[in-house]
């Protein structure tokens, strides 16, 4: 048996998987390229030179600087952060639920976070910070409701998912109801927000999100080690010394917080939490949860989707949630055809 490649740096001794490393670097490169393209593109097109100049406030075009620094850059950074958060959340919940389709956007957490935010927007006229808080409360509230309803002398993964589906359906209806009953101006904002969009991303949105992720993402990475082992079943995990219940609780808290923060920033965006972790795993082929690769994949997907959403039917701007949803549909079809071929 070959020795595993290990990277040693002082007290740190971690395994290095060449394929995962390559994939990670490739994704990072893709993110950088897409960032530059996204900042260049738009109704006020810029060349690379102008873009770079505007980025570093070195150019002589104040309009370009405004667009780049004031609008496009925050939008792009927000997209990256949101993609990162959603993917990590999905990477947490899919193994927890024991099912690749047990993703937070399917079991209602995303919708619940949206409900919380919508309540702020339509009933209390809240600003971005209040909306973010509303989303987090909504997300946690939904998670609590789903867990309580699914609990019946123990928590079976499948019951959790099914209850989540039911709760998601109800909350989706509630969201539509809130929009219908809201005052005209609030309804506009709400309806737009509900579709998921980066159109109104500001630096303050980015700041709040980045702050939250600075805590949550490292926590998710640290927790992903025991999570990987927990996929072998609770008893096997206890057997190798994992404290299953506390770890699970921590994972749920981090996962819900991630999806709530992401939803607060850009509205409910579907399918990234579902698809990013799985796509990343297919590429890296690594066992275990692959949190970092999933996060990078999510960031890239959202960035790419936002670009498509802006440019596909220009000047009509599609909401990014619609693009990710459609891409998600294609992803599912691809999964299907693979299954067909495998079982045929």
């Amino acid at each position: 048996m070959k020795r595993k490649r290990v990277l040693v740096l002082g007290p740190l001794s971690v395994r290095v998987r060449p394929r995962s490393l390559t994939v990670g670097i490739a994704l990072l490169a893709a993110i950088v390229v897409l960032t530059v393209v996204a900042v260049m593109a738009g109704d006020y097109p810029l060349t690379i030179g102008q873009t770079l100049a505007a980025l570093f406030s070195a150019g002589d075009d104040p309009l370009a600087q405004f667009f780049v620094q004031g609008q496009r850059l925050p939008r792009v950074v927000c997209a990256v952060l949101v993609g990162l958060a959603l993917a990590c959340s999905g990477a947490i919940f899919q193994p927890l639920a024991g099912n690749p389709l047990g993703s937070p956007d399917i079991i209602g957490f995303t919708v619940g976070a949206a409900t919380g935010a919508l309540v702020q927007i339509t009933l209390f006229d809240g600003g971005p910070a209040a909306t973010a808080l509303g989303a987090v409360l909504g997300g946690f509230g939904t998670a609590l409701v789903v867990y309580l309803l699914a609990w019946r002398s123990g928590l079976a993964g499948f019951r959790l998912v099914l209850v989540g589906i039911g709760v998601a359906a109800v909350l989706q209806g509630v969201n539509s109801l809130l929009v219908v009953r809201a005052s005209l101006t609030a309804a506009q904002t709400a309806a737009q927000w509900l579709a998921g969009s980066f159109n109104t991303s500001t630096w303050s949105d980015v700041a709040i999100t980045a702050l939250a992720l600075a805590v949550l993402v490292p926590a998710a990475v640290v927790l992903s080690r025991p999570l990987g082992a927990m996929t072998m079943g609770d008893e096997a995990a206890i057997g190798i010394g994992i404290r299953v219940e506390p770890t699970r609780l921590a994972l749920v808290i981090v996962g819900v917080a991630l999806v709530s923060v992401a939803t607060a920033a850009a509205g409910p965006i579907a399918f990234v939490a579902l698809a990013a972790p799985q796509l990343a795993r297919r590429l890296t082929g690594a066992p275990g949860v692959g949190m970092i690769a999933a996060g990078l994949m999510g960031a890239m997907l959202v960035l790419a989707s936002d670009l498509v959403a802006q440019r596909l039917f220009a000047p009509t701007q599609l909401p990014v949630g619609v693009v990710t949803g459609s891409l998600g549909g294609l992803y599912l079809i691809w999964v299907l055809t693979r299954e067909w071929r495998r079982n045929a």
Partner: peptide
């Protein structure tokens, strides 16, 4: 089946919106 249905419904409703 339920999961598959939900996933497909979500994808489809996004496509419908598009």
């Amino acid at each position: 089946l339920a999961l598959a249905g939900v996933a497909i419904s979500m994808a489809v409703s996004s496509l419908v919106q598009t």
